[in-house]
């Protein structure tokens, strides 16, 4: 059975409603923070702002703390409420999503560290076009993943699953052009490697956003589409809520 966005607020136990509500609210707050971290990390590079880069690295601790808090809340709900059906799926999806958000946070902090190195090395703007393109794409993916989670929107979630393929293509093409830089100028190897780490981190963020989208499908439809080829997904079964 598909679920709708009001479903977790209809329990006879109001306390239970509140607990599930808090899980969702805290996950969204964590999502907001992680989104900001990615944005700032990329801005640190593109605007050569190493102070901002260092703030992103410091803030990663806050992201980690939020994951621990959400995990603890989920543990409490599992132990005290023994949730079933969509409630159980919500708790599982929140645990998994928090773990992916934490990894996105780690990637953001990786981007920020590499950005600081590039700023110190006076790299100029080489590779910025690629970073800007992919970062805009994956940031949109993270935002859409969080929106689809908040609205339980499987259509939006499924779009993301397809978009991840595009990011992978953009990443491969960016890698090729960066390799050309390295071949042309051996002195560029070190800064270009840093850029490659940044692009790699962005590509991983896209993968995590894709995972978030898969959890939305699991939460709403009860279908586990992880490790499924996006082209094999049965759009009809996953289609609008019936």
């Amino acid at each position: 059975m598909d679920i709708t966005s009001d479903i977790h607020s209809q329990h006879i136990s109001r306390q239970f409603n509140q607990e599930l509500d808090e899980l969702k609210t805290h996950l969204m707050a964590m999502g907001g923070l992680v989104e900001k971290q990615v944005q700032d990390a990329v801005a640190a590079l593109l605007e050569s702002d190493s102070d901002l880069g260092r703030r992103v690295v410091d803030n990663d601790r806050a992201v980690n703390d939020m994951q621990i808090k959400i995990d603890e809340e989920c543990t409490q709900v599992l132990a005290r409420r023994q949730p079933t059906a969509s409630d159980l799926r919500l708790v599982l999806a929140v645990i998994r999503a928090a773990s992916d958000l934490e990894r996105i946070g780690d990637e953001a902090s990786k981007i920020a560290r590499n950005a600081c190195e590039l700023i110190d090395a006076n790299n100029g703007t080489r590779g910025f076009v690629e970073v800007r393109l992919i970062s805009e794409h994956v940031r949109r993916m993270v935002r859409d993943a969080l929106t689809s989670f908040a609205r339980l929107d499987t259509q939006l979630a499924l779009q993301l699953v397809h978009e991840d393929e595009e990011v992978d293509n953009e990443y491969r093409s960016a890698m090729r052009s960066l390799m050309t830089f390295m071949m042309e100028d051996a002195r560029a190897i070190s800064p270009v490697l840093s850029l490659m780490w940044i692009l790699r981190a962005l590509e991983r963020i896209g993968d995590h956003a894709n995972n978030l989208a898969e959890y939305v499908v699991y939460l709403v439809k009860g279908l586990d589409i992880r490790h499924t080829d996006p082209d094999d997904l049965d759009e009809e079964e996953l289609g609008p809520k019936g």
């Binding site: 059975m1 479903i7 209809q10 006879i12 239970f16 079933t84 059906a85 159980l88 009860g222």
Partner: peptide
Amino acid sequence: LFTNPRLRRTENYITGRM
């Protein structure tokens, strides 16, 4: 039935909803 029931009535009962 306990992870993904097919009907809303079942879902409501096993999850303790009105």
